[in-house]
Simulated assay, not measured.
Amino acid sequence: MNRNIVFILLLTVLTSCNFKNNQSAARPIDDKNKITSPIALMKKMQIALHNKDSNTIANFLIKDSTRTPTMAKALAELIIELKNGSYYQFREQNIKIFKNLDFKLPTGTARIMFDIGMLPSFSTFAENGIYIKDKNKLTYHFSNEKSETTFSINHEMEIKITDDGIKFWPVGIQQSKAIIYTNQIINNLESAITSTSKKFKQQENLDNLIKSAVGETSLTYKKSPANGKIEGRNWKFHSGKAEKGWFAGKYKYLIQLTNLEVENDCEKNINNDYYQLQLRNAGDYNLAYSDCILTIYKKQKDTKETTINTQTIIDGKVSIEIDNNNKFITGKIAGKLDDNNYINGTFTIPICDN
């Protein structure tokens, strides 16, 4: 099934269901001074959401070296804006204007908005959440077995016990600067669009807003063969391949870079740690925008099965040259998710028949 269709289906189902669950929820244990259980915390967050109290939500979000107070504040404001529907109401009220504009959300913005949309309500976690103390997670399991398309999803809140009480962070929301610039874009979108009635000026305001919010990457290309890390494991490019085809509804090149040493790149199915690019043509790309998507595929093992976890890198750039006569692609890449997941350097791979 097309991945975009699956995303839309999941989002529609999850926002329309009551999220009922037969499992028993953990019981709240409050005192008068501070929140002392994840369930009580979720109840408090639901009240804050209803009252559009972003300061309270931000106060209870986990803070650390990555999740700064600025990021927490931005996420709290986004949750209120997107969960209360203000942004979507504005889009609906100005649908004619947006139809006449070239409005492309940055990759990170589209991802953050989708992830927040997928997040069950705080009240759902309060009513049906299961607190797994040894894993520091509050889990809600959603299963849709009555539909023609059966699926199930585990939604999780990271829980952290601090001197100030219990804090949380939605596990599905990627910790990145996209949270901050997405909030900036949404906060200023109305003024950019409604401050003028002239289409060319609206487009100019929109383009300037997105460019100023996202900014340029500070990463620079290395001249050595691509290398880096995946989940803290050292990673070095040894082989890869490119295929042309329809991906996510558009005709693109799908490029996979792996640390495997193989004799024939085109015959090898890649199922270990690797980096993947999707792009339409040769050229220079800023990874913050959806014209080029860089994804990390991380192989994870547990006691039952091997699973692949994916994350999108939005900080970086890519430069691609395509030799269709000799069926080769050469490129430079610099992308970073965090100190444990990054890639930088050059590569050359064959274009394979698929």
Score class of each variant (00 low, 15 high):
residue 11 L to Y: 10
residue 14 L to A: 09
residue 15 T to W: 04
residue 19 F to H: 15
residue 22 N to L: 14
residue 22 N to C: 12
residue 25 A to G: 11
residue 29 I to S: 12
residue 31 D to N: 15
residue 33 N to V: 14
residue 37 S to I: 08
residue 54 S to G: 09
residue 55 N to F: 14
residue 58 A to L: 06
residue 62 I to A: 08
residue 66 T to L: 13
residue 66 T to C: 11
residue 69 P to Y: 05
residue 71 M to P: 03
residue 71 M to W: 13
residue 78 L to H: 00
residue 85 G to Q: 07
residue 86 S to A: 04
residue 95 I to F: 13
residue 95 I to D: 08
residue 97 I to F: 02
residue 100 N to Q: 14
residue 101 L to D: 13
residue 102 D to R: 10
residue 102 D to F: 04
residue 105 L to C: 04
residue 109 T to S: 15
residue 110 A to N: 13
residue 111 R to V: 08
residue 112 I to W: 03
residue 123 S to K: 12
residue 125 F to P: 06
residue 128 N to H: 12
residue 136 N to L: 08
residue 144 N to F: 13
residue 147 S to V: 07
residue 147 S to L: 03
residue 148 E to D: 13
residue 152 S to R: 15
residue 155 H to I: 01
residue 160 K to D: 06
residue 163 D to N: 14
residue 168 F to V: 05
residue 171 V to A: 15
residue 172 G to H: 05
residue 173 I to L: 00
residue 174 Q to I: 03
residue 176 S to K: 04
residue 177 K to H: 06
residue 178 A to V: 13
residue 178 A to P: 00
residue 179 I to Y: 07
residue 181 Y to S: 14
residue 184 Q to G: 07
residue 185 I to V: 13
residue 187 N to S: 15
residue 193 I to D: 00
residue 195 S to G: 07
residue 197 S to C: 02
residue 201 K to L: 15
residue 205 N to S: 01
residue 206 L to C: 04
residue 209 L to K: 02
residue 210 I to P: 01
residue 211 K to W: 05
residue 211 K to Y: 08
residue 213 A to H: 15
residue 215 G to D: 15
residue 215 G to Y: 08
residue 221 Y to E: 04
residue 221 Y to C: 10
residue 226 A to I: 14
residue 226 A to Q: 01
residue 227 N to E: 10
residue 231 E to Q: 07
residue 234 N to L: 13
residue 234 N to C: 01
residue 240 G to S: 05
residue 240 G to V: 12
residue 241 K to S: 14
residue 241 K to V: 01
residue 243 E to F: 09
residue 244 K to A: 08
residue 246 W to P: 00
residue 249 G to F: 02
residue 250 K to S: 12
residue 250 K to R: 15
residue 251 Y to Q: 09
residue 252 K to G: 14
residue 252 K to W: 11
residue 256 Q to R: 12
residue 258 T to Y: 04
residue 261 E to N: 15
residue 263 E to W: 00
residue 265 D to E: 07
residue 267 E to V: 10
residue 268 K to C: 02
residue 282 A to T: 09
residue 283 G to H: 08
residue 285 Y to W: 11
residue 291 D to K: 13
residue 296 I to C: 06
residue 298 K to L: 01
residue 298 K to A: 12
residue 301 K to Y: 12
residue 301 K to Q: 12
residue 302 D to A: 13
residue 302 D to E: 03
residue 304 K to D: 10
residue 305 E to D: 05
residue 306 T to F: 02
residue 308 I to G: 02
residue 312 T to K: 00
residue 313 I to Y: 10
residue 317 K to G: 02
residue 319 S to R: 10
residue 324 N to W: 09
residue 329 I to D: 01
residue 333 I to A: 06
residue 335 G to S: 06
residue 336 K to E: 11
residue 339 D to H: 09
residue 347 F to I: 06
residue 350 P to G: 01
residue 350 P to T: 03
residue 353 D to W: 03
